[in-house]
Amino acid sequence: MLSTHGANVKQLCIKYNLNEDKITDFSSNINIFKPHINYELLAENISFSINRYPDIEYSELKENISHLYKIDKNYIQVGNGATELIYDLLLLDEFKNIGIFNPTFSEYERASLINKKNVIDLDINKIDQIDENTTIKDFKNLYLQENVNIPDILILCNPNNPTGIITNLQNLIKFCKKNNIFLLVDETFIDFMYNENFSLISNIKLYDNLIILNAITKFFAMTGARLGYTFCSNKDINRALEKIKKPWSINILAEEVIKQLCNINTDFYEKTKNYFTNESKRLYDKYSSIKNISITNSSAPFFTISLHDKNAQELQKKLLLEKNILIRTLNNYKNISKNSIRIAIKEKHINDMLFDILSDYF
């Protein structure tokens, strides 16, 4: 395994003595479009505020996020990227038994184990068998042995990371509400395509057991600004998060960036959704023509390919050393073939370049 996360380009280039500037990185799932930011104004505002502490309550920041997502500011908690919020949430005493729908982002399990929580591995491929009439006994029969505790919280990414498959979660949230289970949904990738009907953000007020996680990292292509946020109407959970919150974990850059994102043209959203929707379909059709592989029908800015008769790690190393191309292997994910790769959707000509290389390889 070359890296635990995607985009670990610098370390790989040091290891293999490669030029980082020449690497085409298909392991990092970032929007190829960038929102229009007035960098002169951004620099001016930062230079004016750089010698001041950020507001420790993040009042203005939360108001701006509230404006951006049309969410009550009292439902918002912020963190230094979504990852900090994952660790904060899974530190809470309310969550002792953590049910994680796999495959998924590895930090959920890592945060649970670091915080000494009981991790319950759940196969996401069975999730459609849960509905509002599912009983705890049914759930145990579906997922658990009789002596395993029922989760206090269920966690999943929607669309899924790494497959990109999106799921209607209305039945799951009803099941959770009925059985006093919290549901944490990572919607980091949901805005890349026309997935509005799958988002649970409009259910925040209705279900106080629902927590939605998002960030500016992926969709807005602002990985360096490090800003994530949760939406939750449960006062006890928000109060508990505020109690353990590290002071000044959000910097001035993130605060100033959000101000500008509140005013970006709606064309940015439409351009992104239109491109990734069409390009994902085009690539699915192209890769489906290759024998000896299986590709997921993705609703995210990436897709997964399972290799039938090739070795994923050997392919990753071959592409990196011979073609300066970095892809993501999935051998550290659960409930998915270890011989799989994840490929980010880039500009059309770059996608075609990789397709030509892989079609020759297979």
Rank of each mutant, 00 (worst) to 15 (best):
Y87N: 05
N74M: 06
D360S: 13
L91S: 09
S202Q: 13
N149L: 04
S112R: 06
I136C: 07
L41H: 00
Y333V: 09
S28L: 11
Y87L: 07
L169I: 02
F105K: 09
N149M: 06
E132H: 12
G6P: 10
N197H: 02
N51F: 01
C176R: 15
Q145I: 09
L113T: 08
E146A: 05
S288R: 09
S289E: 15
K137G: 00
N197P: 01
T296A: 07
I37N: 04
A344C: 15
Y361D: 13
D128S: 12
L89V: 15
K177I: 00
A82K: 11
I50K: 11
A221M: 02
K323V: 05
N335M: 15
K117T: 11
A111S: 13
N339K: 13
I173A: 04
I244E: 06
A225I: 05
N234L: 11
I357W: 11
I258S: 06
N158E: 04
N80I: 06
I37M: 04
Y16W: 09
I190P: 01
L68N: 04
A312Q: 14
A82V: 01
E255V: 03
E146D: 05
I30Q: 05
N292I: 04
L12I: 10
F182T: 04
A111Q: 07
N38H: 03
S49A: 03
E196D: 13
